[in-house]
Design a protein around this nucleic acid. Structure first.
Lengths: 246, 246
DNA sequence: CGACCCATTGAATATAGTCAACCCGGGTGG
DNA sequence: CCACCCGGGTTGACTATATTCAATGGGTCG
């Protein structure tokens, strides 16, 4: 039982100041926890979800398929994320949500969240902010795919994942666990998996990263970030980055 | 004086059911109207805005610059859009907002919107939904840039702009005014302007569209949409697409 | 008229995709 | 037990899509 509401409280406390009353309301949410096998869809295009999905352990990802069968991965999600929070206000899913690794997910009824939002505008604001931070990541992805070459794009992806994993305690020093195949990276970055492979080799040869199975070690942060043109501001992880008094 | 609050009421009424009380509160908002010359920045990366910008007439666009000077246009905005609504909850701008054409913009103080959100959760939900629909457009842009070839990408862009302009009465039948240069289309679609030019020619040669200065005529909707793999669902323009009772 | 922006086009080049082959490790089943 | 298969990774060779470079023409506005 421990951990369901707790995780949500921790998450929102990292976004906004939570009162005792708000905390109690969060802990009272009826969260249904489920284990989901890797690579299984959780919500699909066209669905009209009545729950939101809180990632509690493992990684998830969202993707779209196009006519000729190609897949574009939109974003990956770390514990604490609520990848389909948008379904609160956009009834019909326009993309898919799936487990990347075996996943522990908490499902929260929309009704309960709407009720919470009406009673606690600050909580609503914190959730709203979460969807906005996700959009900020999408914007930077557009920049990467649209303007950066393969090498810079790959480097940028590594920088971003490291920061996001570190923010939830899943990366430290220079190491992160990144259980993602090169095909998935390719579908996320809009390049062929062969090219991803070559760019990773190039990053290795330049002594910027090393790969150990599903672990990535960053050997040279300064050069990696410079190559990637990486500025973490868009992740909106910093407390000072939040509006005051709301 | 007419038009400032009116436009906002119309916009939100197209998203949610607005009560008389909510309508009055919207009309009481202190909106400062300003004319902005074409190509002028309105808000820049790093700014901490205290107003939101409502596009009342003309077109706007958002963009990011990267280290080597390249520009990625994230989205274009039509009248009724509030392109920087996200600044309500993300204090620091991570991109720029600029006028594409001469622009009539209404500036609404954040304080007033926060106050409104606290008093009227349904209005807050409608605004939230607006930011989510913007994110949906970003997602589809990622798919376009990541997976579609130049021709399909260009066709998709035309389909999207047509639908969005039509939704606010700026396109009808098969014609829309699209005062955008090929360089801007190129920066939005992540391709060179030379290639955009060639793809537009190809669309013309296939008799899918014709260009008349700043007007675009769609000659063959069925084929254009098929070529673009275009499904307007992601625009979330349909009323039936909205959750009920919120 | 000249400057400038935008559009257009050809030619050369480059980046990235496709095709194909091979390796490795883990799981399965004969 | 071992052969086989399969997913994931790696690499070379070839191809294609798209970029870059360069030159031109048509408007519009001081």
């Amino acid at each position: 039982m421990a951990g369901e509401g707790d995780m949500l409280v921790r998450k929102l406390a990292s976004i906004a100041v939570i009162t005792a009353e708000e905390r109690d309301a969060l802990l009272a949410l009826p969260i249904a926890v489920r284990e989901i096998p890797a690579r299984q869809d959780i919500v699909r295009t066209g669905d009209k979800p009545v729950h939101c999905c809180l990632v509690m352990a493992g990684l998830a990802f969202r993707y779209k398929l196009i006519g000729d069968g190609k897949r574009q991965i939109l974003n990956f999600h770390v514990p604490g994320d609520i990848p389909d929070l948008q379904s609160l206000h956009l009834a019909v899913m326009d993309h898919n949500l799936a487990a990347l690794t075996p996943l522990t997910a908490g499902f929260i009824p929309h009704d309960a969240v709407h009720d919470l939002n009406a009673r606690f505008p600050c909580l609503a604001g914190a959730l709203w902010r979460d969807t906005l931070a996700d959009a900020a990541v999408l914007r930077e992805r557009i920049v990467s795919i649209g303007q950066r070459d393969g090498l810079s794009r790959t480097a940028h992806f590594m920088c971003e994942m490291f920061r996001r994993l570190a923010a939830v305690g899943l990366a430290a020093d220079c190491a992160m666990a990144l259980p993602i195949t090169q095909v998935e990276i390719a579908d996320a970055l809009g390049m062929s998996f062969v090219h991803v492979n070559r760019m990773l080799r190039e990053l290795r040869e330049r002594r910027l990263i090393t790969l150990q199975g599903q672990r990535v070690l960053v050997e040279n942060w300064a050069e990696l970030e410079a190559l990637a043109d990486f500025d973490p501001a868009y992740l909106h992880l910093e407390a000072r980055d939040r509006p005051k008094g709301i």
